[in-house]
Simulated assay, not measured.
Amino acid sequence: MKKPLPPLKFFPLLLLIALLLITSPLVFAHTGDGPHNGWLHGFTHPLSGLDHILAMVAIGLWAAQGHGRIVWLFPLIFVVVMGLGGLLGMIALPLAFAEYGIMFSLVILGALLAWRKHLSLSVNVLLIGLFALSHGYAHGSEMPSSISLPSYAAGFMLATMLLHLCGIGLALLCKKFAGTRWIRFSGIIIAGYGGFLLIP
């Protein structure tokens, strides 16, 4: 008779489920409504849609598969380039691929996590930059004209970094208590959700 698995074995999965339950009422809530304080509005914007949340967590999960400085380099590159994308969105400079960039970021990052594909540093940086530009543009283009640009940008960049840290923390918990299979499972969920969004 097999011994039951320790409760901690299920902790990473429970954490992921809890994150999805907490954020599920916010799916596709990119209406532009919300706090009129610039910083608070910017901070809540990345939390207002499941597509953004899953992509940010996926960046953290993917970064945690690397070693040394890679773990922190990917999230930092993402946040910096996302700030540039946000600026492009704020000044209404057209960026045709932004919405598709968001959806493909879920599909590609999820697939990389699910199949544990290791890419070269230059390819990783290129993908992260394109995804960051798309997500940043979406945040910037939806900024209300009545709030401060710098405080709004600071808010969504901080929220993004915290979501990256959640992904890194989740990956470390999975490796410690449950193995990498839960990371691969989360990749399947993320890629599947991205694929669903691509359906016309």
Rank of each mutant, 00 (worst) to 15 (best):
P75W: 07
M157I: 13
L8V: 15
A138F: 04
A159P: 09
L197I: 03
A132D: 06
H135C: 10
S186Q: 05
H45Y: 09
A58M: 03
R184C: 14
A178W: 08
F97L: 15
G89T: 10
L93W: 15
R69G: 12
S122A: 15
P7H: 00
S120Q: 07
L16Y: 11
M161A: 13
K117R: 14
I22H: 13
A58V: 09
W182H: 01
L173M: 15
A138N: 05
A114M: 13
G89P: 08
G34I: 02
P46L: 01
P150L: 09
L95A: 07
P144D: 01
D33W: 05
D51M: 03
F131M: 12
L121S: 13
W39G: 03
L19R: 01
V80N: 06
I77E: 02
V71E: 03
S145H: 13
L127W: 09
H67K: 14
S48N: 11
S120C: 12
D51H: 08
I188P: 05
G86Y: 05
M1H: 10
V79C: 06
P25D: 06
L50P: 00
F156N: 00
L119S: 00
I17D: 07
P150F: 08
S146Q: 13
G34D: 07
P4K: 07
H30Y: 13
G167V: 06
G136M: 05
T44I: 07
V79R: 06
G136Y: 04
H52A: 12
L50T: 11
L73E: 08
L76V: 14
W182Y: 14
A178R: 06
H36W: 10
L198W: 09
F74R: 10
L126F: 15
P4A: 04
V57I: 13
D33M: 14
P4V: 01
G89A: 00
L106K: 02
L197G: 06
V107L: 04
L87K: 04
L95Q: 13
Y193S: 09
K2E: 15
I147W: 06
G86N: 00
G195M: 07
L54N: 08
Q65F: 04
L162S: 01
I77T: 02
L112R: 02
I188A: 10
I77Y: 08
P144L: 02
L197W: 02
P150T: 06
P6D: 15
N124K: 00
S148E: 00
L16M: 13
M1A: 14
K175L: 15
P6N: 12
L170H: 02
G83V: 09
I59F: 04
V123Y: 10
S134H: 07
A18F: 12
L95M: 11
L158G: 08
I199P: 09
W62R: 02
L13E: 08
W182V: 11
G38L: 09
G34K: 12
S186M: 10
G194F: 05
G60C: 04
L16Q: 05
I190V: 02
H135T: 00
S134I: 01
G42R: 05
L119G: 00
G60A: 12
L13C: 11
K176Q: 15
T31R: 08
L133H: 10
I17N: 03
L106R: 00
V79H: 05
Y152A: 00
R69S: 14
G32W: 11
